[in-house]
Nucleic acid binder design. Structure first.
Lengths: 221, 221
DNA sequence: TCCAATATCGCACTCAGTGCGAATTTACGC
DNA sequence: GCGTAAATTCGCACTGAGTGCGATATTGGA
């Protein structure tokens, strides 16, 4: 039914090897659980959907569910932007280093955001707001993204002091979060004429620039 | 045993009235639960401490616990900086408005941080890092602070565009979060010679200024 | 003093998540 | 092919958090 695949299987990935039957089945099962879970969540809500319902609908035993996911929440979390979290590191590695880390982050976030603004991601995001702990865990994921971002930045801009790149990562993810809030509000107020997330992200970064204009060889894209 | 009181009772506060016996007992009971909970958490860890243990040690029935707290997590969350979250709004209202919102936030955070760097707050904070959901919910609380901050800023600097003050609030709380990370790392590495949180907060704001120098009538304190 | 609101409590229940271990399936070297 | 080790699936029983319901006690105020 759905397109974008969740990630992160229990055991470590085997990079070079060709994927055997075992791995394929595992991936398929995990995907099936994730699909089923999201579908049931959308139909009945997150809390009203029991683990047993997911397991039954996915054709596995209750106990097997926990072999693939640590918790019910993790099923939904796996749809967090449908791979956005995992894509951001690699995306930043593609960026040229003749721009500032913040400008690079801005550019690659704009690209990613456009790629991941799908129906499924939007539905999952709405569900992510239905519970206190889910809202909280989404924030935790953004902090994870911030850490990854800072990590990659530190690798690619080794000349810049680490505190600077960490600050840049914080600014970038903070801007992303504010932009997402605006975007959601926009959609709630004008469901038809709402602008894409990328627009809001641009506006938020522009705001950041204004409040805090670029320095030292930073350019605006 | 402890000093700082958790807050937020079930029913709304009665501002002008003198506090009757009923209210006092309620506050006492809630405080006793919070104290007992924190003590047991510190002794045995968060997950190893059951609700029944807290209820028994606090001298109440298991069912009564849920009359005061929504969940076990909330007992610990109530110690979040021991009132820091609630103090930030009022503190910002005291700040003069001839400085920029960000500068004001910086100043009042510096003050608060010094006031709330207590043994209890530190212990509670360590416990808040022992579980994924607790970590996440702490972040959620910081976002709540960000919202409150933006709210008060909007009231007190009505001339500034709301997006600007929200961005300023994001920057301030983001800086607070990074500073707290540094401070914790500092304590982990040099338990004896570690610098106070206020120092790290100063450093982080300085970094923010550098990455993003102040504009438009902003001054450094 | 009586009434209504608040507070305390017990009971039974649902559901998430875990520990243990058995049964099954797959990968892989021989 | 064959056998072994590892990975996967599953059932069962258990703990513990949180809820719904309703009964009882306590308190504030008319």
């Amino acid at each position: 039914m759905d397109t974008a695949p969740p990630s992160a299987l229990p055991s470590a990935a085997t990079p070079g090897k060709t994927e055997g039957l075992r791995d394929r089945k595992r991936r398929e099962t995990m995907q099936r659980i994730a699909d089923t879970g999201l579908r049931l969540f959308m139909e009945n809500g997150f809390e009203a959907t029991t683990l047993d319902a997911i397991a039954a609908a996915a054709g596995i035993a209750r106990r097997t569910f926990f072999y693939y996911f640590k918790s019910k929440e993790d099923v939904l979390l796996a749809w967090q932007g449908s791979g956005f979290v995992e894509a951001i590191g690699p995306a930043l590695r593609q960026e040229p280093t003749d721009q500032s880390p913040l400008a690079a982050a801005r550019h690659c976030l704009l690209t990613l955001v456009a790629r991941f603004e799908t129906k499924v991601a939007i539905a999952a995001d709405a569900l992510l707001r239905s519970t206190e702990t889910l809202r909280a865990r989404k924030l935790a994921k953004m902090v994870d993204m911030e850490r990854d971002l800072a990590q990659v930045m530190a690798e690619r801009w080794p000349d810049r002091p680490p505190e600077d790149v960490r600050m840049a990562a914080m600014l970038a993810i903070g801007a992303l979060r504010l932009a997402q809030e605006d975007w959601r509000r926009d959609h709630a107020a004008h469901p038809d004429t709402a602008r894409p997330l990328a627009d809001h992200l641009n506006a938020t970064f522009a705001l950041l620039d204004r409040q805090v204009p670029p320095v030292q060889g930073e350019e605006r894209p």
